[in-house]
Amino acid sequence: MVTVNGKQLDIAGKNFSEYLSDCGYDRNRIATELNGNILTKSEYDNTILKDNDKVEIVSFVGGG
């Protein structure tokens, strides 16, 4: 199981870019963390989610 934003999901083995697309995330409006470390956009395509991974996806909204 992979924990994404606190939720346990059965997505181990899935490519991270694909997961983002499946969920409708706009990669131009997010920042992501994997197991305590930042995951840069250039790493999305080559990241395969593993069992026990913890992912945090932060969405930015407009305003400032």
């Binding site: 131009n28 409006r29 997010i30 920042a31 930042i38 840069t40 956009k41 250039s42 932060v58 969405s59 930015f60 909204v61 407009g62 305003g63 400032g64």
Partner: peptide, 27 residues
């Protein structure tokens, strides 16, 4: 104020300056 600009800046800092602190805002 622009969400995409926030994301771009964060990613640039993570890539170029991983040693620096970033304090961002959203909402």
């Amino acid at each position: 104020d622009d969400a995409a600009a926030k994301s771009m800046l964060a990613d640039s800092i993570f890539t170029l300056f991983p040693e620096k602190y970033l304090v961002s805002a959203s909402g």
